[in-house]
Design a protein around this nucleic acid. Structure first.
Length: 600
DNA sequence: GTTCTAGAAC
DNA sequence: GTTCTAGAAC
């Protein structure tokens, strides 16, 4: 999958290579240390953070009083060919209007609509009303802060809309923009008209997407959000407005579904009934969408690559509309409202990045694929990851593949990465078992674990070790009392070969059980220096089985046994004994350079 | 990998 | 009674 590339030869790299037996080894290790730069580019994980957007949607800043409207979300009775919703995008004042102005706003917004002061509430027939037609309101994706070319974006929108108006039955798609002078709306309108897209099923609308009903009289049971990858509130524009209008309930509900989003993907979030958007606007679902970023000021910028940009934008709209379809299906198929919400929770659960990777709420542990991914693949929580060469075959659950995804697509995970090169990616362990605990990921495809490593990977192993050492050195400059150990788990829990760089204090609240301890303090933990020697000499590494994980708890320094984890932790916090001789040999432990561990 | 929790251990 | 483990669920 990922081919190893020619490595740049860098001259910097003043680190110890304690395992190296010869000068050529040292040189090889130095040469393979192809990194972004020396330590100064390093580690706080701050690069790649998305800066707050500056554009602020005016609508949310205004002081409209609450308009209480009974929720009508999830209605499925809509089957009318409604002439009451033509293409609407005439000038309209979107600035502050009180409820007194509501009716005039509605009629202003709907030129050509049957003059109806209370259009939002009143039925136009015995069983159907404009309210009951399932409608997706969506902003133009990526054309604001992400600076996607408007001309190209309008082509993509019209192309995708044309495709999906055929699939949505009687439901409607509405492109919304806050500004009445919106260029994207006029472009899309013109192109949609050219293509004879049914203007009852698709039209544009000028207004605040968070107040389509209360201000504009347009009932939309689903609205799309131009989200950020973190699926967090804030920033600016539509994202800030929607999170603000929906209240904290949306944040909670979003976390239930996914922790983050990749460009080109969408996630459907059922809106809790305590959200103002549900109560006031009748919105039952929010679909977060992440489009391509062409803005060089933002991370993950595609710059001028519109081939990729257009593809990602198409994917984004595909995911969005597929998400809308899934909402329609759920609402049409199930009569019990409870069942609807339960099913939609399951069917729409999404998330490209495993929640596991997020620094946020650790209680969100829902697995799943994004809508678009899921529509292409068979269902299930296991990716197809059986090995072709047959050396090992194991099905990795979704959570266990987080590192693999990072290694294969580090550009999508800049937020968690400390360093990337062609060979490795470096990140903090999300659940560090000591004060310092890094993972050095191999970036080669097909290297799931130590058992997959062969002689041909020797060079990679030395690179991983060198990078790990360099990080240890850096930490030692900050705190010279630390001691590091570098090694691999014989049987890892997570896919993709990764080297642990872990300080020997084991002072961490994440170290909670016997398995945690023994995975780092029995022969189950394979020192990097030993692995390299074994691969060099025998072509394979010695592996220990998982029985080591249930062994008695022993102090890694004085080897005393302890009955349980709390007692062990209490002991190791004070134990000053020298490390056992086996650990003192061959550079298995990495103290500060002038430290003599045997005497400590 | 983590979280949750029943029941074992103390 | 509380602490802690370990297995199931995710």
């Amino acid at each position: 999958m990922l081919q190893k590339k020619e490595l740049p030869k860098l001259s910097e790299g003043f680190f110890r290579i304690m395992f190296c037996q010869s000068e050529s080894d040292v040189q090889a290790a130095i040469n393979t240390y192809s990194v972004l730069g020396p330590l100064d580019t390093l580690p706080n994980g701050s690069f790649g953070q998305r800066k707050p957007d500056t554009k602020v949607q005016l609508g949310i800043m205004k002081f409209l009083k609450k308009v209480d409207v009974p929720p009508n979300a999830g209605s499925t009775s809509g089957s009318v060919q409604d002439s009451a919703f033509p293409q609407v995008s005439k000038e309209r004042d979107t600035s502050c209007k009180g409820p007194d102005n509501l009716s005039s706003l509605s009629t202003t917004a709907y030129k050509g609509v049957k003059e109806s002061e209370d259009l939002p509430k009143h039925s136009i027939g015995p069983d159907v009303s404009p309210d009951s037609i399932p409608t997706l309101a969506f902003p133009s994706i990526s054309t604001a802060d992400f600076q996607f070319n408007i001309e190209k974006a309008s082509d993509v929108i019209v192309e995708k809309v044309e495709e999906y108006v055929k699939k949505v039955g009687n439901a409607r798609l509405v492109l919304v923009d806050l500004s009445h002078g919106s260029k994207i709306l006029s472009l899309v309108r013109a192109k949609a008209a050219q293509r004879n897209i049914d203007n009852k099923k698709f039209f544009t609308f000028v207004g605040d997407i968070t107040r389509l009903y209360s201000q504009g009289g347009l009932r939309c049971n689903v609205i799309a959000n131009a989200a950020n990858w973190r699926l967090k509130p804030g920033g600016g524009g539509v994202n800030a407005a929607i999170f603000s209008a929906a209240g904290p309930a949306l944040e909670v509900a979003t976390k239930e579904q996914a922790a983050s989003l990749l460009p080109g993907h969408a996630v459907v979030v059922p809106l809790p009934s305590n959200s103002p958007l549900y109560n006031r606007e009748g919105v039952s679902h929010i679909i977060h969408v992440l489009g391509p970023n062409m803005n060089p000021q933002r991370s993950n910028c595609l710059k001028d690559d519109y081939v990729k940009g257009c593809k990602v934008l198409r994917d984004a709209y595909t995911s969005l509309f597929d998400g809308f379809l899934s909402v329609l299906r759920n609402q049409a198929n199930v009569t019990s409202k409870n069942l609807v919400s339960e099913k939609s929770m399951k069917d729409t659960s999404c998330g490209d990045l495993k929640n596991h990777l997020e620094n946020g709420d650790q209680k969100t542990k829902r697995d799943g694929d994004s809508v678009s991914e899921r529509s292409k693949k068979s269902k299930g929580s296991h990716d197809d990851n059986s090995k072709i060469d047959g050396s090992t075959s194991k099905s990795w659950t979704t959570w266990a593949q987080a590192l693999y995804h990072i290694a294969m697509h580090p550009e999508k995970h800049k937020n968690v990465l400390l360093e990337v090169s062609d060979d490795v990616a470096v990140l903090n362990d999300l659940y560090p078992k000591a004060k310092k605990h890094l993972l050095i990921l191999a970036r080669y495809g097909g290297l799931d674990r130590l058992a997959d490593v062969q002689q041909e990977h020797l060079h990679l192993l030395t690179t991983m070790h060198s990078v790990g050492l360099r990080w240890a050195e850096k930490f030692l400059q900050e705190d010279s009392s630390m001691i590091f150990r570098l090694g691999y788990h014989s049987v890892p829990s997570m896919r993709q070969l990764h080297l642990h760089v872990i300080s020997q204090d084991f002072n961490s609240n994440h170290l909670k059980n016997k398995k945690h301890w023994n995975s780092f303090n029995t022969a189950f933990f394979r020192d990097s220096v030993d692995v390299i020697e074994e691969i060099r000499n025998h072509g394979k590494a010695t592996l220990k089985d998982e029985s080591y994980l249930s062994m008695e708890l022993r102090c890694h320094r004085c080897r005393s046994a302890h009955p349980n984890i709390p007692r062990l932790k209490s002991h190791i916090s004070n134990c000053q004994s020298p490390f056992p001789p086996s650990l003192l040999e061959n550079g298995r432990l990495v103290p500060r350079q002038d430290e003599n561990l045997s005497n400590s």
